[in-house]
Design a protein around this nucleic acid. Sequence first.
DNA 1: TGACGTTATTCCCTGTGATATATTACGCTT
DNA 2: AAGCGTAATATATCACAGGGAATAACGTCA
Lengths: 118, 118
Amino acid sequence: MAPANKEQVMSFRGRVWIDGKEGTFIGYGRVVLLERILEHGSITKAAKSMEMSYRHAWDLVDSMNRQAGKPFVELATGGKGGGGAMVTENGKKAIKVFWRFHRDLQAFLKREEKRLKL
Amino acid sequence: MAPANKEQVMSFRGRVWIDGKEGTFIGYGRVVLLERILEHGSITKAAKSMEMSYRHAWDLVDSMNRQAGKPFVELATGGKGGGGAMVTENGKKAIKVFWRFHRDLQAFLKREEKRLKL
DNA sequence: TGACGTTATTCCCTGTGATATATTACGCTT
DNA sequence: AAGCGTAATATATCACAGGGAATAACGTCA
């Protein structure tokens, strides 16, 4: 019979993000939003696809664009289809860097859980 | 002349905590609270010392005690001085484990910032 | 038995962050 | 010139976490 390992229902959790001049610059939600914009071509559709209000989505995009040296998203108002949103090369790079950061964190958490485990 | 390294005002940030059966179990605020209780011997004084409401502090202590196998804090109502709060050995261990976890995260963040830096 | 200081618990109230709603601006297309 | 779908912006509404106040319960000590 196994020694009934106490109650190991504990899990080591964590979050990471990148701060800029105005506070949060790149985080989980923002990167998912960027990917949805990449997929749908508009803030409106991207926001709907992840059950986020348009206003919130627009604020996030605006915040990123203001803090980035070169914008992550190019916005077009009016025109064919009423306008739209396009993720720039710079934005795509940010997505890659963040996911790498995020993946590294998951590995870190696994290691810590093994090492400490209370 | 140095090559004017764009605007490197970005910093890699993160938070860690430990989840239990009911959600958050141990986190930064909770550990600081434990230390203050250790120092002052009562929830009331500990809460005041960190500008936290008694109610909130009590909730946190209760949450930790319910989720821990053996309580982190022993509470006494009535008696000499009206009662008080004592951090148990188990609680002290939790403090140590969390600070280790937290310090490791800081090191992790430094490494990542060097490696990725966007 | 009364006083004391703390834990324990309830109720109300407010600030605030988010959502929802509405309106305007925009520029291509027909 | 009208229509379309989007961006951009302002206003109103809602939800809820958190604080504050108030009260009861508790057990030792004088």
